[in-house]
Simulated scan of single mutants.
Amino acid sequence: MAESAPNAEDYTRWATGRTHHAPHLPESPPIPHDNNMELVSSPFTQRIKATGATGVSLFKDPRNHPDAVGTILTHAAKQANFCPSQGLKGQTEQFYKYIAEVNSFPGFFLTFDEPIFLELSKDLSLVINDIVRAYKGVADADVNNIITSIEAMANSILNSGSRMPGPVLFTQMTIMGNSGDPSLLLTIFYTTLQMKIETSGKITVATPQRYTIHRKAFKVLTHSLVANADKLFELFGNGSFEQWLKVVTSGGGPKLSCLELRHLDPKKET
């Protein structure tokens, strides 16, 4: 039996933290974490552009929905106190709460939720290939964007000053427009690795080890956002996906990691 379309009351309950909307598919396994885990986040967008829309039209006009989705995701991050832009430590538990907030938003329909269990034996660059392959069949993400995101996350670890071995949670989040379709797709991928920095300054990975790429994809319910535009603007106000990117992007830097161009052959496989 199909679920009824979300209404203004559903959105109000979500925005005020009074509900946990039932997920449409089973949850992925819990995110492993401990007190020493660092989290790095490098989201990106694809085939969307900012319109600068304000007011009710932010939600009423589907052309403005990239910014509307960014506004909603920014609210979810604030509710979960998830702000990796302020540092790498102490964000893992907040990320778990953030995922729960996104997963329960009435205007997002969870279409895919599946982990991939893998084992890394020698080379961190192989993780790049695994993550790129993990997108196939889930989302039509640009390979260059994926790899640039991974590079940024690696650089965040290099510039964090951490020298002790410890787990790292890599998170990639994407707002993507669908060609020829006004609807949007939101994807969230996250990977846990045991990382350490060698004295040479390069990133190495404790091996052998098992790791998991968690994959989630949500379809944005465009018609529901339009139908509830007045209430959504009342609840969330103005915003943009650019604001969301600033909040959920970890600090990086110019230092080059071991994920150099010589390791990035997948860029050619467009």
Rank of each mutant, 00 (worst) to 15 (best):
A76Y: 07
M153W: 05
R133Y: 05
L225H: 03
N228M: 02
T249D: 04
G177S: 00
A217E: 02
L185P: 00
A139P: 03
K246P: 05
T71M: 07
D230E: 15
R210Y: 00
L110I: 14
N238M: 04
F233D: 02
L158M: 05
T45K: 10
L259D: 05
D10H: 13
Q94G: 01
F117R: 13
D142H: 05
N64Q: 08
T174G: 12
F105A: 05
S240G: 06
P165V: 07
V247I: 15
S28T: 14
P165G: 03
G201M: 02
R215E: 04
D181K: 08
H263D: 09
H24N: 11
E93A: 13
S41R: 08
A77M: 06
N7C: 05
E93M: 07
T19R: 01
K60P: 02
Q194N: 07
L126T: 14
S156T: 06
P84Y: 02
T111N: 06
L256E: 15
S121T: 09
G239F: 02
Q194C: 01
L110W: 10
E151M: 00
F233E: 01
P84K: 03
T16E: 15
T199Q: 11
D140H: 11
L110P: 13
I197H: 06
W14L: 04
G87H: 00
S4G: 13
A68N: 11
P30V: 10
H214R: 11
A80R: 07
D130A: 13
K202T: 09
K267T: 11
P23I: 06
K267H: 06
D130T: 06
L158C: 07
A206Y: 07
L88M: 10
L58V: 09
D181M: 04
F218T: 02
D67V: 07
L120A: 02
V102Q: 10
T74I: 00
Q79S: 13
E114H: 14
G239R: 00
M173P: 00
L186V: 15
S179V: 12
L193M: 09
P266C: 10
N64V: 03
D123F: 07
I116E: 03
T199Y: 10
I116P: 00
F95M: 02
A152D: 01
I147M: 00
P115R: 11
T54S: 10
K246W: 08
R13E: 08
T92W: 00
Q94W: 03
Q172H: 08
L39T: 10
G107S: 05
Q79D: 11
I197S: 09
Q194V: 08
